[in-house]
Design a binder for these strands. Structure first.
Lengths: 186, 186
DNA sequence: AGCTTCAGTGATAGGGTCTAACGCATGACG
DNA sequence: CGTCATGCGTTAGACCCTATCACTGAAGCT
């Protein structure tokens, strides 16, 4: 049973995170400003500290959400095999590139992700291994290659490094997916 | 012929960039502070604006330097073929991970790299294509795979995503290098 | 009805970027 | 060699930011 206070609190927390996502999409994580969020919600800056202990904690919470949403996206791909999973990953990433970079982008020296996101990461990896198991032997190694190769194409595409290169990122991505379906020579 | 003024100016600019690199290595690009740099050099914050028009311009200059240093690293690898080039890339990246992420990390929405760094990037890519040409047909496609696959492993390693996974990043990297040496099935 | 809890406020400290006006030394030049 | 302009570095200040603190007032609870 939730009290009215708790419901209100959850509501405001959700609104803060929503505005935070908008700001991050617009100007990246370093551009996120608690003051600006508060203003958008019609309150003053310090009020937000009722809901998040610090700016870092808010960002950590967003990272948590990002991991969670990737997990549900991967789960939703279900038993569609490696190719289906790869497709789901790409559409998920393209839906919000800054969300992708929040997880896989430039690390902040000294920052360590909380343990629960690392657990989520492990679960996602397990899903990946399971999907690769039905495509041949050596599921772990296959899943690892899957991850690194797709991340390679995806992160470069999302960062805009293919701009002006007369190249279709989707095709490049698809080619890597195909490369993962055939067995690797030692 | 350089005047004393010019020499002094170049010297101070170099010192600023040196301290900037130290700060970036220690706390990432968002943590770079002109005030802190000025203090380290024994002057006050505004003095730095004699040397760089803005914080962004200083960072842009560092990005330029990063591209330049990667180009010289790649050039130094010379005619050692794809494998040698891959090794040079990895040691260059490991030498300063934040430098790598300055080039290939999270992009800032709205920021566009200056044209000369894009030219440097093209030259580096040309080197890569040349190295791949001696390893078989389809040099461009091969070079592209080379780039995306190595970046995939390297960026995940540098960001610490392999931590606690009981896995040797160097071996993973080497495996990808091997994968690039064999011809790809369509 | 009274009391407690807590959301939101303004004030304040301390940091950042960046502009503007000002002293002052140094190099340039007649 | 003396004069003068160039330009380096300063302080002051505008305007951001995060974060803390004491306080007010309303809402919920007993």
């Amino acid at each position: 049973m939730t009290t009215p206070r708790e419901r209100y609190r959850a509501q405001v927390r959700a609104e803060i995170k929503e505005k935070a996502w908008e700001q991050i999409a617009a100007s990246g994580a370093p551009g996120l400003s608690l003051n600006a969020i508060a203003k958008q919600l019609g309150m003053t800056g310090p009020a937000l500290y009722r809901y998040f202990a610090s700016r870092d904690e808010l960002i950590t919470e967003l990272i948590r959400e990002a991991y969670g949403s990737l997990e549900t996206a991967v789960d939703a791909a279900g038993e569609t095999g490696p190719a289906g999973l790869a497709g789901a990953l790409r559409t998920w990433a393209l839906a919000d590139r800054q969300r992708y970079f929040l997880m896989y982008g430039t690390p902040v020296p000294g920052y360590h992700a909380p343990e629960d996101t690392r657990e989520t990461a492990r679960r996602i990896m397990a899903r990946l291994v399971a999907a690769c198991a039905q495509a041949g032997p050596g599921a772990e190694a296959r899943a690892l290659r899957f991850w690194t190769r797709l991340h390679g194409v995806l992160s470069l595409e999302l960062a805009g490094h293919f701009a002006g290169m007369d190249l279709d990122p989707a095709e490049l991505y698809a080619a890597e997916v195909r490369s993962l379906e055939q067995p690797e020579l030692p």
